[in-house]
Amino acid sequence: MIKLQLESTLDILNLNEVQEKGAGFQALTGMTGAGLPPVSVQWLEGAGDGSVYRGRRVLSRDIDLPLDVVGRDRAHLAALLSRLARVLAEPCTLALVDEDGSRWTTEVIRTGGGDVTYGQGTTGERDLQMVLTLRAADPYFTSAEASFQVIGGDTTTKSFLSSMVSLPVAASQAIGSITLENTGDAVAYPVWEIHGPGHAFQAVSPDKETLAWNGTIAAGEILTVDARTGSVVDQAGINRYADLAPAPRFWSIKPGLSTATAQLLGVTVDSKIICSWRPRKWMVI
């Protein structure tokens, strides 16, 4: 059974607390918006019959969450409502926790709901029911646990030379093969963390799309390339996007198993590439 939590930097609200402890917050049956998100479909209307599909864009997800708040007494109910208000005052995270401990999250903002009609939404002085309306700008549920692969290093991971596939290798360059397993059902976006020294980083997708960065990083420096946001920064937060090759392809990882390659020149035993990604799902039940 999936359990729900609302999380912020201030607090974590367990939305199964009434069932577990007899008081607190309880998500009720009837939540909507956790299934397939809405899409906007583009069609080309021509002179002939019908139309031609040109693509689609996944829209934001709206979630209606029925909630029961049960206090031990009126004062405790007021304290619970204050906690809820503080969490919902800013963007927060809706987390769905499965029985096996896996967590899928999406950032949400309250766009409405939370009103109460006395006599209908309340029963006595310690129980209150409401419906919260939340919007998730990112329509996917993202795994809280990242998957990763490492090429390079000299301790617990394979060295560049022992990670090679059947490709040309010289003493000052390395080309490694990375197995990508996306356990979600939507595309995931890799985050590349390149530890220097090295230069001319390149990552080639299973479909032969190439992301190339032609800059140089010294020993002890780290370059982070985020394919989802299209950002390239070093360990000091300095923008290094200008060193990308023309027309960069920030490619994504399709569901299932696939193999990509990564290359770095001018390496030593301290050089390594870490590729991480968080699987995403259309819906979690």
Results as ranks from 00 to 15, higher is better:
4 L>P: 01
8 S>Q: 04
12 I>E: 12
16 N>K: 13
19 Q>G: 13
23 A>C: 10
25 F>S: 04
27 A>D: 07
28 L>A: 08
37 P>M: 00
37 P>L: 02
41 V>K: 14
42 Q>K: 12
44 L>I: 12
52 V>E: 14
58 V>P: 01
62 D>L: 09
67 L>P: 03
72 R>F: 15
78 A>G: 14
78 A>K: 13
80 L>I: 09
83 R>F: 02
85 A>G: 11
87 V>L: 03
98 D>L: 13
99 E>N: 09
102 S>Y: 00
103 R>I: 15
105 T>M: 10
107 E>A: 11
110 R>N: 07
116 V>I: 15
118 Y>D: 10
121 G>C: 08
122 T>V: 09
131 V>N: 09
133 T>N: 12
134 L>C: 05
135 R>V: 10
135 R>W: 01
142 T>Y: 00
143 S>R: 07
144 A>D: 10
146 A>H: 01
147 S>I: 07
147 S>T: 12
148 F>Q: 14
152 G>Q: 06
155 T>P: 03
167 L>R: 10
169 V>N: 09
171 A>L: 12
178 I>A: 11
179 T>K: 14
187 V>D: 10
188 A>S: 11
191 V>I: 15
196 G>W: 04
212 A>W: 14
221 E>C: 05
223 L>A: 05
223 L>F: 00
224 T>K: 10
227 A>C: 13
228 R>S: 09
231 S>K: 08
232 V>Y: 03
238 I>C: 02
244 L>R: 04
244 L>K: 05
245 A>E: 07
245 A>K: 02
246 P>S: 06
248 P>A: 01
248 P>I: 01
249 R>F: 05
256 G>K: 04
267 V>Q: 08
269 V>W: 08
272 K>P: 00
282 W>V: 12
285 I>P: 11
